[in-house]
């Protein structure tokens, strides 16, 4: 069973989580074309490599951000949305990464399914 590290609840069986799709900027609903809106809602880039995604811990209905390698299916790290935004802001301004610490995720164990 793969273990995913929820930023709120800690390490849990992957069966407690739901994939929420790639993290991508939302177009302005007032000005987006139908094609842009459809692309945002339904179409994935299917990047081979490291991507940033939404994940949901279903028992707590808690959404967070994970970075995953789609080639190896390794979850590189997980973080709260606030930590993700802080990192984006720091990256945009060219500063060092903020102190908000992401959690490491994606280890394989022999734990049984719940």
């Amino acid at each position: 069973m793969k273990i995913l590290n929820c930023p709120l609840n800690g390490p849990r069986n992957i069966s407690e989580f739901v994939w929420g799709g790639e993290m991508k900027p939302m177009p302005d609903p007032a000005t987006a074309t139908d094609a842009q809106w459809t692309d945002f809602l339904f179409l994935e880039d299917n990047t081979a490599g490291e991507i940033t995604e939404w994940w949901l811990h279903a028992p707590t209905n808690y959404w967070f951000i994970a970075r995953r390698n789609t080639l190896t299916d390794e979850i590189i790290e997980t973080m709260t949305y606030d930590a993700y935004l802080a990192r984006q802001k720091a990256n945009a301004s060219g500063e060092a990464e903020p102190a908000a610490k992401p959690t490491t995720g994606g280890t394989e164990t022999g734990a049984t399914s719940a």
Binding site: N9, N13, E16, A58, P59, T60, A114
Partner: peptide, 12 residues
């Protein structure tokens, strides 16, 4: 407290 899945359903 653990908010988790017990017997396949969500439980606190």
């Amino acid at each position: 407290i653990a908010q988790t899945s017990v017997a396949k359903i969500s439980a606190i």
